[in-house]
Amino acid sequence: MASTSKARKFQLERWLVPVLIIGFCAAAYAVSTTFKTMPPILKRGIQPADFPQLLLICLVLLTGLMIWLDPVQVRDRIQGTVWGTMAMMGVFAALAGIDLFLALGVFAASLAAFWGERRGGMLALVGLIVPASIFFFFDGVFEIRFPRGLLTNLWYG
């Protein structure tokens, strides 16, 4: 029973990929029809929409060929650790609004813990020392100004 539902899920992914690609191409093509058209004297060889439209048509044709000759094959499920890591990336994106380096530190330490690291020293290394040293290195050597936030304000004043 479980293997039937697994096979069904893989079959879904097999068709979902081409459908998504064709859907993307159709939407992008529709958007490209709204581009300004240049008068003949200004168009410099091709209209702004011509090249992307040509590419989208190629992509759809190649998708058709892919379905026929080389369909998407899925052999295994995406593991929970991958979904978890992606979810953490989402949390990182949310926290980055407060402070980029706070988000990086929290993400790095949480990811290390999520992937099985239990030693406190190692968690401090990836969550604290690595982001801090990269921050000071880029700030001091390359004079990169990072976005202001909760922690970076302590340094920038």
Binding site: L100, L104, F107, A108, A109, L111, A112, W115, G116, E117, M122, L125, V126, G127, V130, P131, I134, F135, F138, F142, I144, R145, F146
Partner: peptide, 22 residues
């Protein structure tokens, strides 16, 4: 260990992506 290396690579990647145009 992978669990130390890759979180550090992520920090490096994000800072690198930001650094070009800030």
């Amino acid at each position: 260990p992978t669990q130390i290396l890759w979180p550090s690579v992520f920090v490096f990647s994000i800072v690198g992506a930001y650094a070009l145009d800030q």
